[in-house]
């Protein structure tokens, strides 16, 4: 589904190179996890895939179902089925959460040539999904993420994902800031979306989330590269021993 080949990325503004040849393939129906030390380039990878400004791809490619992502506008990537749950969800004063969600859902449907959801249908679906994530009606009325707690912001990301039903979901540290119960809610939300045609790339620092969302494959990223790929046991090894051994191996 997602195929990243030899991806090299530097900052547009200066010469700092962040991704130094990332190779990664996520198959449909699978859950992949990425772990790695702070500053290794995990968020950068997710931003570059979703089309954020400020980065320059100097080499390599990234395709979604064979279609080159890196040439597309961010909204086209979203319509193609890519979704990024942000490590730091953005606050948008003045734009209601509900308006935002409806606009996004209908924009994607329109881009795919589907009919827009009626206001009634939309409300019905959103209420049901919000309830599952314990997001109350009052939060839906507030401006996007404004005044939300850290955990509320993360749950709001998952609500967006549930509404947009993307096929490739990237979750950047969605577990950080969540209490134990909220982590369970979020994991249930993700697991409910797991299906044959959908894949997940879960960026995390902790085994905890992976207890709930069982990964098929675990990658270790360090200094802009994937330095090791393995099964779920790799996450346990990191949890127990940190990154020192893994880093030493590749030296």
């Amino acid at each position: 589904m997602l195929e990243i080949k030899n991806l090299h990325v530097k900052l547009e503004e200066d010469d700092k190179v962040i991704l130094k040849g990332v190779d990664l393939t996520v198959e449909a129906g699978k859950v992949h996890a990425i772990m790695g030390p702070n500053g290794s380039g995990k968020s950068t990878l997710s931003y570059v895939l979703s089309g954020r400004d400020g980065y320059e791809v100097t080499d390599g490619s990234a395709t979604l179902d064979g279609v080159e992502l890196l040439e597309m506008e961010p909204e086209e990537r979203a319509a193609a089925g890519l979704f990024l749950a942000f490590q730091y969800p953005v606050e948008i004063p003045g734009v209601g959460n509900m308006t935002f969600l409806r606009t996004a859902v209908n924009a994607q449907r329109k881009a795919r040539g589907e009919a827009e959801l009626s206001a009634g249908d939309f409300l019905k679906i959103v209420r049901e999904k919000a309830k599952a994530l314990k997001i109350d009606a009052e939060m839906m009325k507030r401006p996007v993420n404004v005044g939300f707690s850290g955990g509320e912001k993360k749950r709001n990301e998952i609500l967006q994902m549930a509404m947009l039903e993307p096929k490739m979901c990237i979750l950047d540290e969605t577990d950080s800031g969540l209490d134990v119960d909220a982590m369970k809610l979020v994991a249930d939300g993700v697991n409910a979306l797991r299906s044959e045609g959908r894949a997940f790339l879960v960026i995390t620092h902790y085994q905890r989330l992976l207890d709930h969302i069982k990964p098929d494959v675990v990658h270790i990223m360090a200094d802009g590269r994937i330095i090791k790929t393995g099964g779920p046991e790799l996450a346990l090894e990191v949890e127990n021993n940190g990154y020192a051994n893994l880093l030493a191996e590749v030296q």
């Binding site: 990024l84 948008i92 994607q108």
Partner: peptide, 16 residues
């Protein structure tokens, strides 16, 4: 710009 990118990453076209 960040808010603009966030909206677009959810599929909302630039103009909108």
């Amino acid at each position: 710009d960040t808010a603009l990118y966030y909206l677009r990453s959810r599929g909302v076209p630039l103009r909108q």
